[in-house]
């Protein structure tokens, strides 16, 4: 049976969110950032909050994310997105405010802003894509680069005696009373994508309850930085990254699970 007669509006079960602009994504082929960016658009569309949401864009691979989702955006300086978000939410408390950040942005230069926004319990959503490297600038070592992992600034593998081990900022902020929902997800398989979408929906809905920070870390591949094919990178991520950054909820309803 020709597939063309299946292609009818009533048979449509999935398509790209209408909030996505026509701009092709700048991310590398197979990069988790693309999936995360699209999931955010889908969640905002499904919650019907496109006119009340403000996104804070980082400096990093997602620096031009504001070109991809048709909502109001503010581009922050490197590392400062959570401070920017703090102020936006304080002056516009009835809006949804979220940050979209990478590991360098959130866990290196922006560590203090991350910790203090979490400690103050700002009613914002922090979306943190952890791919263990600085992708945009060409694959340098990040705070989350794994021991022994080669990058352009630790070409012989990260030496924990010299550069310390990969940091788990998500567990650090989970112990702060200001964080209400803290989870670590991934987008490398259909099942993982569905879980991440559920987590994003939950996080945005929590903003209405003013209970504090919802923090979603998404462990992701970086194909060009890790110098692997997308499929291999996801496999490597499962074997190596998930050992240091295990997936799952860390804090729910303000209570630590792990």
């Amino acid at each position: 049976m020709e597939s063309t007669d299946i292609i009818k509006p009533e048979n449509l079960v999935y398509k790209r969110s209408r909030l996505m602009t026509e701009q092709p994504l700048s991310y590398c082929p197979g990069c988790g950032h693309g999936t995360v960016t699209n999931l955010i658009a889908e969640v905002i569309e499904e919650l019907g909050i496109e006119s009340e949401v403000i996104g804070i864009a980082p400096v990093g691979c997602a620096v031009t994310v504001y070109d991809f989702i048709a909502i109001d955006w503010i581009g922050a300086a490197h590392g400062r997105a959570t401070a920017v978000a703090t102020a936006v939410k304080r002056v516009l408390p009835d809006r949804y405010v979220f940050t979209y950040q990478g590991d360098g942005d959130l866990a290196a230069i922006g560590t203090a802003e991350t910790i203090h926004a979490c400690n103050r319990g700002e009613n914002i959503t922090i979306i943190f894509v952890n791919n263990g490297i600085y992708g945009m600038t060409g694959g340098q070592m990040a705070p989350t680069t794994l021991e022994g992992m080669k990058t352009s600034t630790c070409p012989y593998g990260r030496d924990v005696n010299m550069q310390g081990p990969p940091i788990d900022i998500t567990r650090m902020i989970a112990v702060l009373s200001g964080t209400y929902y803290v989870t670590r997800q991934a987008v490398h398989t259909p099942a993982a994508v569905r879980k991440t979408k559920k987590a994003l929906l939950k996080a945005f809905e929590l903003q209405k309850t003013n209970k504090g920070v919802s923090f979603i870390e998404i462990v992701s591949n970086c194909n060009s930085g890790w110098k692997m094919s997308p499929v291999d990178a996801n496999r490597w991520m499962e074997e190596k990254m998930f050992k240091i950054y295990p997936l799952g909820d860390i804090k729910v309803d303000g209570k630590m699970l792990v």
């Binding site: 922050a76 400062r80 401070a83 978000a85 102020a87 802003e113």
Partner: peptide, 13 residues
């Protein structure tokens, strides 16, 4: 550093 970026955020709003 955080303060001026908060100013930036509120101004952007």
């Amino acid at each position: 550093l955080a303060a001026i970026n908060m100013v930036y955020g509120a101004a952007a709003a």
